[in-house]
Computed example of a mutant assay.
Amino acid sequence: MKKYTNIFNAFLGVLLLISVKFINPVCTGSVVLQSGKKMPMRCHYTSIAAMVIAVAVIVLALELYYRKTYLPITFITIGILLFLVPMDTPLSIGVCMKPMDCHLTAAWIKGISLLLILSGCTTFFLKDKNTKIL
């Protein structure tokens, strides 16, 4: 039963990757600096961070599936870090201040991160004699 949580985590990683890139992409606007140069808004960097984390979740979940092990603390930690990425804190990147498309992307990121946290928590309560915890 626990091996299905790894498949579910890999599915969540794929869903995060697809949702950030194709379903709800961030706005494509740019900020004009005083020097006249254009720079992408910070939601652009939030989407890049979310995609990197999504690829890491996919790779980790597939590796754990083939090794028949699980790391619940790792997925809980990744979920918490992913939840912090779109928020406006000193530890994160954040999204635009005005209501734009990136706020819907942030909602997707937060929802998928909560599902990752829940899947990590459920592996503590599932019983399976064929898998081992690292």
Results as ranks from 00 to 15, higher is better:
residue 116 L to I: 05
residue 90 P to S: 08
residue 79 G to C: 06
residue 31 V to G: 00
residue 59 V to A: 14
residue 129 K to R: 13
residue 127 K to F: 07
residue 18 I to D: 02
residue 72 P to W: 06
residue 101 D to H: 12
residue 104 L to R: 12
residue 113 S to R: 02
residue 69 T to K: 15
residue 122 T to W: 10
residue 105 T to A: 06
residue 116 L to H: 01
residue 7 I to R: 10
residue 21 K to R: 12
residue 52 V to E: 04
residue 79 G to Y: 03
residue 99 P to L: 13
residue 126 L to S: 04
residue 48 I to A: 06
residue 21 K to C: 07
residue 29 G to E: 10
residue 117 I to C: 02
residue 74 T to I: 14
residue 112 I to E: 01
residue 119 S to L: 01
residue 89 T to N: 06
residue 95 V to E: 02
residue 85 V to W: 00
residue 44 H to A: 08
residue 52 V to R: 08
residue 80 I to G: 00
residue 104 L to C: 02
residue 11 F to R: 02
residue 30 S to L: 02
residue 126 L to K: 06
residue 71 L to H: 13
residue 87 M to H: 06
residue 51 M to S: 14
residue 122 T to R: 07
residue 17 L to G: 05
residue 120 G to C: 08
residue 93 I to L: 07
residue 117 I to D: 01
residue 89 T to G: 02
residue 5 T to W: 00
residue 67 R to I: 01
residue 63 E to H: 10
residue 47 S to H: 04
residue 40 P to N: 07
residue 117 I to P: 04
residue 92 S to E: 06
residue 97 M to W: 02
residue 36 G to W: 07
residue 37 K to E: 15
residue 118 L to P: 00
residue 44 H to R: 09
residue 109 I to F: 00
residue 27 C to E: 14
residue 70 Y to P: 02
residue 82 L to D: 05
residue 45 Y to N: 00
residue 99 P to Y: 13
